[in-house]
Design a protein around this nucleic acid. Sequence first.
DNA 1: CAAATTATAAAACAAAAATTTTAAAACATC
DNA 2: GATGTTTTAAAATTTTTGTTTTATAATTTG
Lengths: 176, 176
Amino acid sequence: MGMFWRDGYKATSVGDIVRETGLNTASMYKEFVDKDGLFLETLKHYRGHVIKPRYEMLRDNPNIAGVEAFIGSVMTGAARSEYKGCLMMNHLSQKHVIGPDAVQEIGAFCSELESLIETALINAQRDGDIGPDKDPAVLASFVVFCVHGAVLYGRHYEKKRMIPNLYDVVMGALRG
Amino acid sequence: MGMFWRDGYKATSVGDIVRETGLNTASMYKEFVDKDGLFLETLKHYRGHVIKPRYEMLRDNPNIAGVEAFIGSVMTGAARSEYKGCLMMNHLSQKHVIGPDAVQEIGAFCSELESLIETALINAQRDGDIGPDKDPAVLASFVVFCVHGAVLYGRHYEKKRMIPNLYDVVMGALRG
DNA sequence: CAAATTATAAAACAAAAATTTTAAAACATC
DNA sequence: GATGTTTTAAAATTTTTGTTTTATAATTTG
């Protein structure tokens, strides 16, 4: 997973993977059929084990606090020097290259995030934390859009010092 | 350029390139040394011929109108169904894979954009189009951050109908 | 514990990719 | 127009990659 995450599907060879994991080549092929299958399972593992815990803050606090915490954690991650982006979103620029199942998994992943945020924003609006004139669906899109931004922007080693300020701008845009 | 743009460096083979361009393999290697060299020249060509014209609106109108027009054109592009993102930014998630010269070129490209935007925003502030409490440098970063967002977000075939609304949110965040 | 199944290491294969070579064709120069 | 240089087409070479096979070792099952 780490190699797909850091280098992307195409630049990670099966040889690299078996060397790194110590997995047996034949067993690997028996289990996952081919490189595509392995990649797909990697995406599922990522979603279940890496991302799911990070969604907890949104599920536990489906309101402005949850959204704030989530965006904060994304931005903090993006500001780290070893930041690798998001395994899923990293591959959006390579949709032709990965299989259709993987493309679909990535889409579902982003939609899930968007709907979690939307729920939280609807509650935030009810709580008076975002203005009544705002459309929670649009703002949820905007948040996901910004997560995409962070995933790419965080790859610039320089520019990182600006990220805390970006967090403020994004939150300001939400609150309105 | 189109192939690198659509599929990325690693998924575009030299064989594909000579087939598509009709270029002779030996001539190509004589001219560009290797695939890395060809890619680097492709990036420079992209910057000079694809991007430079799109920066005109910022150079001609270094003010809120220029910024608005630029962001508008990015968002409109991202909403197209055949959207390929940005040749440069697409490769941010593959910095290990492309050569160091290419990485540097991408960084310079993004910095140039950021400074053009900053100049325009400084003027916009002078014109009273953005509040005196805002920091143009931060907002310029935010714009570049949003361009990164658009580059990835525009890869979702669904979700495109939301992009006009995102444009409004981004401009709203600028104006404050 | 013997028989059947499964896992593993290692080598083998096949296809694709990047790059180089070779020899003929085109071009430029004197 | 002969001579030297550059370009081109085609095949050859070298790596790398994805995948399969084979033979041996380990594990499970009856």
